[in-house]
Amino acid sequence: MAHLELDRVAKQFGAQTVVDDFSLAVGKGEFISFLGPSGCGKTTTLQMIAGFLDPTRGAIRLEGKDLTAIHPARRGLGIVFQSYALFPHMTAAENVAFGLEMRSVPRSERAERVRAALAMVGLAGYEQRHPRRMSGGQQQRVALARALVIKPSVLLLDEPLSNLDAKLREEMQIELRQIQRTIGTTTILVTHDQNEAMSLSDRIVVMSQGRIEQIGTPQDTYERPASAFVSQFLGKTNDFAATIDRTAMPARLVAGSWSAPAPAGLSGPVTVSIRPERIGFGDAGLGAKIVTRIFQGNHWLFQCASECGPAIVIRQNDGQAQPAEGEGVRLAWRAEDMSVRGGAAS
């Protein structure tokens, strides 16, 4: 049985459907990310799990029990908010102790658990600081300690790292991952940052306009995007219009001057999607001209004008000579590196 289960959950505000037909089973100890652009319904879904919003339809179950009947104060979930939502009038220790107080944990045990929680997030010695006198990263850690100290059945993270600068965010990602692995709390992270989702999660739920586009491991969703939206949202990609030529024997998939044996069971116009780092410069393939060439340290980024429209290519900076701007090139890739969508069944 799934630890946390969302069963065809939907949320409407008036006539507007914000989340629709959301079903997901989260295993115990799993780290799940809800990934999507702002307004895709990911935060609304999180708020329904937390109990701050009620689903219009569907059920949310924790270990088989219906959660929607339980008041948010008694759900026992740990939440870290985007703004951290620390209590500004309390010290770090008082913030962390608050949830234990609400649970009437004896004073001596409380002190010990607060100390341990702050130590776990690397804030030993900061017990008596007020949030206003702490840096963004420190506040973030207090918020995490406060959510974890109550030993929540599920940890909900609402864009917890989005207010940190890039370097700190990366550090916190690693730390968050380690802490979650150590204590094994089932965790749901809401984010619009695909790198964050990929580096932290066991599985990613990609959302768009209130619907689930794909559920899968980070590798799955990146390598085999289920829709154009997913392929566009998870990193850069090239979408080329192609056709399947059934007159040739055997049938071939053709995009400009590039062609490969056609996959079985498809015909007509299709879209092929290739990640830029999977494209190489070869002797045969799609005809293109380099428009701009940008050096980015460990790799080169090429923007090309190809027979099938604009294309991006990323090449490792491996010391080899690279084509110059204005140069004509041929773009080639392996058939197993692309995904093909659309087309009629034949």
């Binding site: 948010p72 979930l77 740990g78 939440i79 939502a85 209590f87 609400m102």
Partner: peptide, 23 residues
């Protein structure tokens, strides 16, 4: 007031009068 501060208190188990008085 940042409403998420109150939500945080609720998620930690505070409600009603305690929520008002403490947060």
């Amino acid at each position: 007031m940042d409403l998420s501060v109150e939500m945080a208190a609720v998620s930690l188990g505070a409600g009603g009068w305690t929520l008002f008085r403490r947060v």
